[in-house]
Amino acid sequence: MAEPRDEVLAAQAASGDLQAFEEIVNRHRMSVYRLARSITGNHDDADDAAQETFIRVYRSLSSFDTGRSFKAWLRRITYNTSLNVLRASSNRKKRTVIAETDHVPDLSPNPEQIVQSRDSGCQIQAAVESLTAELRATFVLRAAEGMSYRDIARTTGVKIGTVMSRLSRARERIQTAMESAGKLPQRGDV
């Protein structure tokens, strides 16, 4: 028997069917977590954001229009929630460090960290992680989730031109890191 569509499950959950909601969570938790992780950059915040996303979904089910795509709706909530969690987490970290040291910290990696990263072959991963949340999320939505520019624009609330420029910048930085790590030939070497 074919599995019920997300929109059908959402309608059932909206009428109080907890099993339907559980099915929604099980079906989408991985992709919600992946997107949250790509935005927040760490497991703890991604976990918070993913949990909070599903709670928000549950609370808003009655306002969901079943004629629209549930996935797109869910992605948009995930994106916004993850950005909120990231901001709250950054503010918390800043406040803690300021309280301890009484000055704003330089969060960029120091030379030792850079050398270490190079030595351990993590340069490319470091480049991905050094992207801003918006660049990283756009890149993940395209490269990992295979979303179209239009869907990414809808999810992130920006124009298609901005999606393209974010994608281009994200890829450029990763490509540069790959070239300096010797994983790709330098451009123009052909």
Binding site: M30, Y33, R34, R37, S38, H43, I124, Q125, V128, F139, V140, R142, A143, A144, R171, I174, Q175, M178, K183, L184, P185, R187, G188, D189, V190
Partner: peptide, 22 residues
């Protein structure tokens, strides 16, 4: 060949994306 290399570069960059999943 230059544009072909640029296209291969894009493909290689997309391979790097692997979000760790618990």
């Amino acid at each position: 060949a230059m544009c072909e290399q640029a296209l291969e570069g894009l493909e290689a960059v997309d391979q790097t994306i692997a979000m760790p999943v618990p």
